[in-house]
Design a binder for these strands. Structure first.
Lengths: 334, 334
DNA sequence: GGACGGTGCTGAAACGATCCAACAATGGAG
DNA sequence: CTCCATTGTTGGATCGTTTCAGCACCGTCC
């Protein structure tokens, strides 16, 4: 594979001139430029990004580390990031930690070695962020507010999950549900914790069972649903709030499998409002987040001049659908 | 940010020794090694991947270029690729062309500059592959057989789409459907073309309407369904075959919206058997492909010794569900 | 005591592009 | 004809790592 030297030789100029053609063409006489371009064409010359980057000291790559690439929530966030990155001719690399802390660590170490411009991350655990701090890689926390000790980050974007949880709580209480369950986990994930917290604030911890899951997937949802449905009739909740839509879809599948009617026997509310929620067997009530927006803003925080607000909090939006449509008792007020 | 030189100075050794500690620790005396590691720790030294790569001449990165990262089909393929890459400690970067040829070109050019180990690609168009050929980047075509003029590729993995299309055709014919439609597009996508071709072979072109879409998304599916449902009653097909599950989900949504019963008024069959197909409002009949398998095999072709078969073709598998369950007329054979 | 093999470490030459000070060529002004 | 400004091109230093030939040192053996 040919380098800039080969091109120079073939065009009968020096390497400096070839570099100029590539980077500041206006400095080069037209005739020379043409010769060089012809040589480039002839030799199928391809710039070596490593060499550029080494010299430049910084790359044109921004990284997104998500919890689960198979979750449509994240693919939408990534789409938002890409739209901003494209404008700035930056490359986006996506990696998925799968909720595994070891994996996340390895990936962050790797990204630091690559000297990426920055990392947009929904972290599995705070400690692995330490890797980024120590290697001075700017980070933007996605979907989670920066803690007080995290001023080193380039910023954070988040949706108010406590509020989202509260909205779901109110929704279910209004419909007369007094025995509910929260399905999701692990609690080490801040989103899960906050959604639960908001929910409990409204419905009251006493009337709610929490079924923890190992992760937020359809399979885990099915498993958790089995636990709920196996409860004796008089302890079984009449409504469940799932930490995200994948879990909710799993719950729905389990209900269909067992002939449990939704929402008559069990109301279900999810979170994220992914596209598939609306077209589920029973259209899922869910909490919508401005997903692309979230990604776009995160990328802007990273690439931006730095004088914007360091934290962007968006408001979630409950979307009621059939899966929680039944009213158990008339509303308390009038 | 400190480099290997700073580490060397602080540890009181030469840069060569630091490098040895990093790459061939057994060559270094224990005491020295400890000093060096301590210095690395102190200075938060992070290897510079660009420099390594420049020296080494090759990267440890493999690229996957998919048509649509939001399509669960591709995320599963990527998961397969990652499982192989992890074993070899290679990094996977995913980019999505979104079906846009310009975008694909830009991405491939960029990947060539990065000197990635290879590209696993579901191409939008053959011409952009030329970029890879000229820059000598090994490519594995995913979900598409290599054409005769493409011996330069590292290989190809595919599922027999013609056969999948045929299976759907037979399924619908058996159920007595005589007026059908094929929904999907654009026809420039080989998968779409081949699925259609297999389908038409069985049901006959005369009894099938084709509604072309601009892409394979839920929204396009809704749009195409509107066209089908607006046909006069006596021309309206009794069954549709959608080029993938996203389109099928869109069709299903449109049917629900308009009160068209599935499968009574319209049978629907999709393709890919993504997880959401089974949990749709009406569980979707679909054609299953070994998605992870496909990704794994593709990665193996790229990384492998090169003495395996260059082409791996997998068989698709029709999964009948409720969306095509109704039998219009008794099977022809008694 | 000199030759020899091992071990542990050093120093410098790559890798390929970028960037910059300096030089050559040209034309115009005095 | 000389001097100067402008335009176009050059050569080499540089980025941070890896790699390798070679050096210093030590103990062994004849």
């Amino acid at each position: 594979m040919s380098g800039i030297k080969d091109v120079a030789r073939r065009a009968g100029v020096s390497v400096g001139t070839v570099s100029n053609v590539l980077n500041r063409p206006q400095l080069v006489a037209e005739r020379t430029r043409e010769h060089v371009l012809a040589a480039i064409e002839d030799l199928d010359f391809v710039r070596n990004e490593s060499a550029r980057q080494l010299r430049a000291g910084a790359s044109r790559t921004i990284a997104v580390v998500v919890l689960d690439i198979a979750n449509p929530f994240f693919t939408d966030v990534v789409a938002g990031v890409e739209s901003v990155a494209d404008e700035q001719d930056a490359l986006v690399v996506v990696s998925s930690s799968g909720g595994d802390e070891q994996r996340e660590r390895r990936q962050l170490a790797r990204l630091a070695e690559m000297r990426v411009m920055g990392v947009l991350i929904t972290p599995v655990s705070a400690p692995s962020l330490e890797i980024l701090r120590r290697s001075e890689v700017p980070a933007v926390l996605v979907d989670r507010a920066a803690g007080p000790g995290e001023r080193w980050t380039a910023g954070a974007v988040a949706v108010d999950d406590v509020r989202g949880g509260r909205a779901v709580g109110e929704h279910l209480v209004h419909r007369g549900h007094t025995r509910t369950a929260f399905l999701g986990g692990p609690l080490s994930v801040p989103q899960v914790r906050e959604r639960q917290q908001g929910f409990l604030e409204v419905v009251g911890a006493a009337s709610t069972t929490t079924v923890l899951t190992a992760g937020l997937s359809v399979a885990e949802g099915r498993r958790a649903a089995a636990v709920v449905l196996d409860l004796p009739q008089d302890e079984r909740p009449t409504a469940v709030f799932c930490a995200n839509d994948l879990v909710a879809l799993g719950v729905l599948q389990q209900c269909l499998l067992r002939g449990v009617r939704v929402p008559e026997d069990l109301a279900i509310v999810g979170y994220d409002d992914i596209d598939y929620a609306a077209s589920a067997a029973v259209p899922l009530s869910s909490v919508r987040q401005p997903r692309e927006q979230l990604g776009r803003r995160a990328a802007e925080l990273l690439l931006g001049s730095g004088d914007e607000a360091r934290l962007a909090v968006f408001e979630p939006d409950l979307v009621p659908r059939a899966s929680s449509a039944r009213v158990l008792a008339p509303p308390t007020a009038g």
